[in-house]
Design a protein around this nucleic acid. Structure first.
Lengths: 204, 204
DNA sequence: CATTATACTGTATAAATATATAGTATATTT
DNA sequence: AAATATACTATATATTTATACAGTATAATG
């Protein structure tokens, strides 16, 4: 992601605010009105710059055909998004990954959390985490050994126990004999910790 | 909120899907394309009906000026009691047995339920039910084979899989090799089914 | 039995909108 | 010194789009 200029940031913010307020993206004229431009081409060129830098996508020919790339859905109040374990890429809150939302009291699990992750596979079955369970995920980098983390290793997302064995060695341990430990050498492999599990919900 | 017709539901779903996919609402023509209508007025009239019934809002004059009304879902204060597995006697809702209450939206687990039961022991560990988990219990006698039931046998309460093997024989099966099946002959032994599990919550 | 709601096709058009073109000006990079 | 990116104004226009009007048909309602 390239650098964004202050003015382009203003336009991007303007688009987000407009969508939040109305439910649909602005026209060039709307952006001019909001930001005080006097020519629709001012908006146009900014939009094209934002598109080139991959902050937005523009559907050619469509009115209001602007969409913000990777918009993090903000769960106002108590509607928490449920996202699936996307095989490639992190479980982002981008709308296309959101199955549905679940209304849940804040602080339901003692701790705050950010979204629910739908579990695939049985690699944590001995920890009582079964297929289709919903894990309440708190986005954080504060991880202790033994925490159940949502980790991304080179585009693959998994749920595992976290254990740091040495400054540069992290073990991701399943809770199922049929699966193997994953040893990650941080100098060789990129490891991104999405967050940790603070609770679980099962519907049956 | 008035009743929605099946066709109007289709249109509403179509709008939601379109927004999820593209980031902006559809035009009348888009809706026609998605649903196979041949006249833009088909979409128009459905939209006006949905607006009248308050499912959507339409910004007059604006292209793609459709927004879905999300009526504030406030989970009506549903405080469900958490009861412990009382060794002797059923897990009654008498106040001395209630640990605390947990506020939880109605229909959180798809089905209604009556209280939470705090799990003791690991007899259902292979079903992903661990010590201290909270089972959402629905008081009911409508039990199918394979349901997870909360059963009382002569003053002892347990959580097990339910299986009726013969008209008078019920098996209560644990999900843990280290525990044994319990065979209950209904002619000899009193078996009371408290209810069944419709969901699970874990705080960690 | 008239009225209203639902569920469409088909056509037309004013208004909304994207987008190209022509300029001006400044800063940054090559 | 030339090219490129940023940041605008101003005007024009083809296309997109909302929306009205004219029909047809069926089911529900009072």
């Amino acid at each position: 992601m390239k650098d964004i200029t202050p003015q382009q940031q203003k336009v991007l913010d303007c688009i987000q605010v407009y969508i939040n307020k109305t439910g649909f993206p602005p026209t060039r004229a709307d952006i001019c009105r909001e930001l005080g431009f006097k020519s629709p081409n001012s908006a146009e060129t900014h939009l094209r710059a934002l598109e080139k830098k991959d902050f937005i996508s523009i559907e050619s020919g469509a009115s209001r055909g602007i969409s913000i790339n990777n918009p993090e859905i903000k769960h106002e109040g108590n509607d928490y998004p449920i996202v699936g374990l996307v095989a490639a890429g992190s479980p982002t809150l981008a709308s296309e990954n959101v199955e549905k939302v679940l209304n849940c009291p804040k602080g339901f699990f003692g701790s705050d959390f950010d979204y629910f992750l739908r579990v695939r596979g049985l690699s944590m079955k001995d920890a009582g985490i079964m297929e289709d369970d919903l894990i309440a995920v708190k986005k954080t980098q504060e991880i202790k050994n033994g925490d159940i983390v949502i980790a991304r290793i080179e585009d693959e997302v998994t749920v595992k126990y976290f254990q740091r064995s040495a400054p540069n060695i992290v073990h991701l341990k399943p809770a199922n004999e049929e699966f193997n430990d994953i040893e990650v050498n941080l100098e060789e492999t990129e490891l991104y910790i999405e967050g940790k599990s603070v609770g679980l919900i099962r519907e049956n």
